[in-house]
Amino acid sequence: MRMDIRALVMGLAFAFMWSSAFTSARIIVADAPPITTLAIRFVISGLLGIAIAAALGQKISLTRGQWISVVVFGISQNALYLGLNFVAMQWIEAGFASIIASSMPLIVAALGWAVFRDKLTPLALTGLVLGFAGVALIMGTRISGGVDLIGIALCVIAALALAVATLTVRTASGGGNLLMVVGLQMIVGAVVLAPFGIAFETLEVTWSWQLVAAFIYTTLIPGLAATWVWFALVGRIGPVRASTFHFLNPFFGVTIAALLLGEELGPLDVVGVAIVTVGILAVQLAKQKPTAS
């Protein structure tokens, strides 16, 4: 099997951009209301995506499956997953939130076995056990250290929402108009979140260059670029092989948070991240079918 260099670069870029979103979000929610800020980000990212797509000749002419995916992905990925994570990161660290979110491939595999009776190979079963054990180890050390339990609960629910969103990617990535799909699903996220921001938040912002830089970065890079790269990657190599790159997220997430935010990593955290990483990789590799070289 030949190595697809472009897919490799796309996968690494996606993993880095996706993981960095937790650090930029942590900076944002320290000085601005999370739900309102995220809704504004979605509006800007969505309109930019739609405008660029229109300039490239793409039209709002999607298949029925794509429209369903735009709505489901917009609600699950943007409103629920990112919305809950933004709220949670008022109380928990970016690196910890990224580890919980990174467990999404494990959740998908577990749900496939429990709900759809998917068969698990020994490698996949080993990966599931390792992955969840690693997450449990990290959670145990954080809970004993006094981490906010509501924040953890919100992140877990967010990971479940991301798992649902992932199941819709295959439909959304087919039929062309990828950038238009990305833009539209962000508008859906904004529409869902805006009423909650208006109802429950006060628009109080402590302005700083760090806040502005983090907002611009998260709008353009994790918000627009990473989502487009993910759809393109899935369209190029399929959702199973593309999901393999999620195994890099725990490492990237905690590393970026440690470097930019100064978050501390204890020995058990490092061990837990390594275990989760190996577990995710094992689960994803077990899904791949050998192909002729």
Rank of each mutant, 00 (worst) to 15 (best):
V29A: 06
A53R: 12
R241E: 03
D148R: 01
A55Y: 11
V87E: 02
I198C: 07
A226T: 02
L211T: 01
F247Q: 08
K119Y: 10
L211K: 02
T141G: 10
A159C: 05
V270G: 06
L233D: 13
L84S: 06
F116I: 01
I237L: 04
T36H: 01
L128C: 06
V276M: 13
V43Y: 13
T218C: 08
R241G: 05
I28W: 03
S102G: 15
L178Y: 06
V271Y: 00
Y81G: 09
V87T: 05
A274G: 13
A53T: 09
F116M: 12
F247R: 03
I152M: 00
G176Q: 12
S173D: 10
L285P: 08
L261N: 10
F16Y: 14
A226Q: 11
I27L: 13
R6P: 03
P267L: 00
T36D: 02
F132N: 07
W67H: 12
L260I: 12
L62K: 10
G127P: 07
P290V: 01
A286G: 15
A153W: 01
I75C: 09
D4N: 15
Q77C: 07
F215R: 01
V234Q: 09
A172H: 03
G11C: 08
A165M: 01
G174H: 12
T168Y: 12
M89C: 06
R26I: 00
G11K: 10
G175A: 09
I99M: 13
L111H: 12
I198M: 15
W18T: 04
I100M: 06
Q58K: 11
L80K: 11
H246P: 00
G272I: 00
T121H: 09
S24K: 02
V9K: 13
I237A: 10
R26K: 15
P239G: 11
L261P: 10
F215N: 09
Q77D: 12
A292F: 03
F200I: 00
G176L: 01
M139V: 05
A124C: 04
I221T: 07
T244Y: 11
L111V: 14
T255Q: 04
K119T: 14
L128R: 10
A39T: 01
L179V: 07
I35M: 09
I198V: 13
G131T: 01
Q77N: 15
T37K: 04
T168I: 00
V271K: 04
N78T: 12
G11F: 04
I60V: 14
I150G: 15
P195E: 02
T255V: 13
I187R: 13
L184E: 13
L268E: 11
P222Q: 11
I187E: 14
L80V: 09
A242D: 08
A165D: 05
S76C: 15
C155E: 09
V212G: 06
T277H: 08
L84H: 06
F22S: 07
V72M: 10
F86Q: 09
